[in-house]
Write a protein that binds this DNA or RNA. Structure first.
Length: 157
DNA sequence: GCCAACGTTGGC
DNA sequence: GCCAACGTTGGC
């Protein structure tokens, strides 16, 4: 069973938004490498929910693949900012899964902390800064879950 | 098919 | 807001 990491800007869609909605379609991915990762995600697989472009970027929680990738409707909608005139319903270019809320971590685990955590040296997140959908190894998955259960080492909690 | 120009991501 | 990294586009 594979694990994943999904990036989102919390100003647009945060872990709290997912908790409120319970399920959301993960639309708007317009990068081929991210697409191939999206399409490899299987129902029931877990993914870290990562907050980017925010004051403290980091891992905010966990979601689960509710429905495997199907055509992203926004690519056909001229009104959408994700509209792709080169795509057609007959031959869709972009895909999206549905993801469901699993949990919000007691604290966001900052990117800066991931960078200094032993065992995460090879993590895709730390080497491919712009890839918005990426795999996470079992080892990395376990290490980060352990971090989530610790109190913030910088916060005196 | 190369590669320069351009646009976007995302940390800081 | 700045800017480095890097993905995409398009001329040749």
């Amino acid at each position: 069973v594979a694990h994943w990491l999904l990036k989102t800007e919390p100003d647009s869609f945060s872990i709290d938004d997912l908790e409120r909605k319970r399920v959301e379609h993960w639309d708007g991915v317009r990068n081929y490498q991210a697409r191939s990762n999206l399409r490899a995600m299987r129902q029931g697989e877990l993914a870290f929910f990562y907050h980017s472009s925010t004051e403290v970027p980091g891992v905010a929680g966990i979601c689960v693949v509710e429905r495997e990738a199907y055509p992203d409707e926004s690519q056909f909608d001229p009104e959408s900012k994700y509209f792709d005139p080169k795509s057609s319903p007959d031959n869709p270019r972009w895909w999206m899964p549905d993801v469901a809320f699993v949990k919000k971590f007691a604290r966001v685990i900052p990117l800066a902390e991931l960078r200094t955590t032993p065992g995460l040296e090879e993590m895709v997140l730390l080497h491919r800064p712009r890839l918005s959908v990426q795999p996470v190894s079992d080892t990395e998955w376990n290490i980060i879950n352990d971090l989530a259960e610790q109190s913030d080492p910088a916060g005196g909690g």
